[in-house]
Design a binder for these strands. Structure first.
Lengths: 338, 338
DNA sequence: ATGAAAGCGCTAACAT
DNA sequence: ATGTTAGCGCTTTCAT
């Protein structure tokens, strides 16, 4: 902390400029002097002050990423991918947690949102999208959004095709012979929830079926349990298949079904979404839709790099394809229950 | 990015010093001038350059936290708590992912590990503890470790009593009437794994029982499945209760048991550890050991604040108590199976 | 209450 | 190949 470039200069007998050159691998330093400097650096245990560097260079070498929670396999996958790709580009990653407590005002205190803290920002799945965009554009910080919810801006965005995911999930169920199929969605505030639902509806219509029920649930929660429990308690006929908007919801659905004595997938097939890490380990192993997290991270970094370098980026809206993972929680339709 | 304190000074007709005073809420500015400055700031959309501030102040106002993965409920809980408590102290949080690819050398490129990037660091559950400690001490960056693995240093540390957790989990099983009890542990490289195992062993001994089996598994993986599958395939007698070192392992154990036609907890009771978010939603709902994540984060921040302020901190080793969460995956012993 | 001047640690011209 | 000089944007004495 105390030792600075002057100390190194003094100790090595060189000027601070030469020290700076060594620090930045300038080719114009005599090897002998270079060594002197290197020795002094090691001896003094010196490392350059990055605030000073940032100040003079006008850039930080760090990319920020905002996230809302740390307990999600999809987020984790995206972040790991971002990390790798950033490293390839010589940037480091700083993650910031952004709380999204309902209608609480946008948290401008977010430490990342300073031009002198980061060179660019990746916004991962926020609900306060408009506020972020406004702030970031005002500050002229390059950024890219992942899992954007509004469709009508020209902001660089990477989404996974949720319509397709919902459609494929439903087609899977239909292909298995199911006819009475229900959907429990995420909050409609999320574009992804609305799109998955649309994919569901369209697949049903296409097959000449009408949805057994569609209920708005909540992503990442276990609302599936209470919803199914109510459904059962009311004496409604149980659909033979259910498309849950994510794996947490699916888990809740399955539990309530099992508690009521139904067999999954024997009596009812359930498909989730996201391929959470537990999906492959619960009993029955969850059939689900996997998102291409690696690609998402890769493209996010790519776009951001282009933005930072001022390249003209046209295809600023990217849509990737999800993938069906067929496991054990869905099976052929075997006749009606109840 | 371009507008600086000079621009504000010019526009407001004040000197940069006065602007600075306003920025820092100095009481010695005439209200009228204060307004002028505030207006100029707003009009120019100015926000102070934090690199310059850091440079001159010698401190950053940010606390760093290193973490290895983002898909863990315990980590998430700790981080959320850290975040809250940091905010109370006027600090912001920067998270950095530290990969721990086996024996890969310590990743010194971690962007947090600069005195001029953070004022202090929280190291969350790393395996490369010694490397971190050496680096951080060399750089004289205040830090605190959570879930430390070595017992023999004087580093500020917050752990949850894993011995007690293992002990309580096992006592729970014993109290339920079980006698043939097995344990699948985490990697012994983790102190927490060794301690949970010891708690298990001691509780068994105390009850005059001998462990049905103890197998080293791997935290956070679903090794429980293959381990139980092998056990069953070999025609061994199934223990009537199993203590899995974490919830992921427990999930694997339960699945293999169910696949083999056993009932949980009817035939075999299974207890996990950590109370992952899915634990309350799988079927059967997992009995587990919950860690006091809120307290962990709170104390971590507290200790770090003391360290930064140079206060003498004696009780630099803190040990918190875990809590048994009795749900559905464990039940009274009902006689032998097989 | 306000301002002038010095300097935080570094790099980028511009000499030499 | 190396050094001199001038800032990057801000805060902090020290005057006034």
């Amino acid at each position: 902390m105390k030792v600075n470039i002057f100390d190194v200069a003094k100790k090595s007998g060189m000027s601070i400029v030469t020290v700076s050159r060594v620090l930045n691998n300038a080719p114009t330093v005599r090897e002998k002097n270079r060594q002197k400097v290197l020795d002094a650096i090691k001896e003094l245990n010196y490392s350059p002050n990055s605030a000073a560097r940032t100040l003079v260079r006008g850039k930080t070498g760090v990319i920020g990423l905002t996230i809302t929670a740390l307990n999600d396999t999809v987020f984790d996958g995206v972040v790991q991918s971002v990390l790798e790709n950033l490293k390839l580009n010589g940037y480091v990653l700083a993650i910031s947690i952004a709380h999204e407590l309902g209608n609480e005002s946008f948290d401008a205190s977010n430490f990342l949102f300073h031009h002198d803290r980061v060179d660019g920002i990746i916004v991962l799945s926020t609900l306060q999208e408009e506020a972020y965009i406004a702030d970031l554009e005002r500050k002229k910080i390059p950024f890219v959004m992942i899992d954007s919810h509004s469709e009508h801006n020209n902001v660089p965005t990477i989404n996974v095709d949720n319509y397709l995911g919902g459609y494929e999930a439903t087609k899977h169920l239909i292909a298995l012979g199911h006819k009475r199929i229900a959907h429990i969605s995420g909050q409609y505030a999320f574009l992804s929830a609305r799109q998955r639902k649309e994919g569901f509806t369209d697949a049903m219509i296409e097959a000449g079926l009408s949805p057994s029920m569609i209920i708005e649930g909540e992503f990442g929660t276990y609302c599936g349990h209470s919803i199914m429990q109510n459904w059962i308690a009311q004496g409604n006929q149980i659909p033979s298949a259910i498309f849950a908007a994510d794996d947490m919801i699916a888990l809740g659905v399955i539990r309530s079904l099992m508690e009521a004595g139904y067999n999954v997938p024997g009596d009812v097939s359930v498909i989730g979404y996201d391929d959470q890490s537990f999906a492959n380990e619960v009993h029955p192993r969850l059939t689900t839709i996997r998102q291409p997290v690696g690609q998402v991270g890769e493209h996010a970094v790519k776009i951001l790099m282009d933005l930072i370098q001022g390249k003209q980026t046209k295809n600023t809206k990217l849509q990737l394809k999800p993938e069906l993972i067929f496991r054990e929680s869905t099976a052929k339709y075997k006749g009606d229950i109840n």
